[in-house]
């Protein structure tokens, strides 16, 4: 009996995550736009995303957090029709190159057959998958920039 109580209590205390990684993505409370966090090594100056510790270049162990650009170029993408077990299809993923010379892999918010290589995309925040409790996990995603989506909205 006590063991069962302990188990259920433990589950209550430790719900699965609903926000992917506060070390990578900041969503400010004051309504200012979200941003990705880059990590600049205090020793050699290399900028990384995601955070790598120690720095793979010099093994430095202290970093300065740098807000990364919220817009980048979509280097390539994939419209996925058969995906991971448990993920709803279709969905779109892509590589986004930021001006800081960092490449981010992310899900793209938008329809299949709507993206193009080298088009501009911007950071957004949204669900990427369900957690073990069936709740959405929120993380960074990218979408067409606002001006582009408006244009597309008329045509597509």
């Amino acid at each position: 009996m006590p063991e069962v109580d302990k188990k259920s209590k433990k589950k209550e205390q430790e719900p699965d995550i609903t926000f992917f990684h506060p070390d990578l993505l900041s969503v400010p409370d004051d309504q200012s736009p979200p941003f990705l966090k880059g990590y600049r090594c205090n020793n050699c100056g290399q900028l990384d995303f995601p955070k790598l510790s120690p720095c793979p270049n010099c093994w430095g162990e202290t970093f300065e957090t740098v807000p990364l650009s919220t817009r980048g170029k979509l280097y390539s993408f994939a419209d996925i029709y058969i995906g991971q077990p448990g993920l709803e299809t279709p969905y779109v993923v892509g590589y986004i190159d930021l001006p800081e010379k960092l490449r981010i892999f992310a899900m793209l918010d938008g329809e299949v057959e709507s993206f193009h290589c080298d088009e501009e995309v911007e950071l957004t925040v949204g669900p990427i998958r369900k957690n073990q409790d069936g709740l959405p996990i929120i993380s960074y995603k990218f979408k067409k920039t606002s001006s582009q989506s408006d244009e597309k909205g008329v045509n597509v």
């Binding site: 994939a78 996925i80 993923v93």
Partner: peptide
């Protein structure tokens, strides 16, 4: 793996190569 969490699959990885190659 950070890409797997964000929906990464092997088919997608190769598709991105193919898409860029076509482009």
């Amino acid at each position: 793996d950070i890409e797997a969490v964000h929906g990464g699959v092997m088919t997608g990885k190769y598709s991105m190569r193919a898409t860029r190659y076509m482009y």
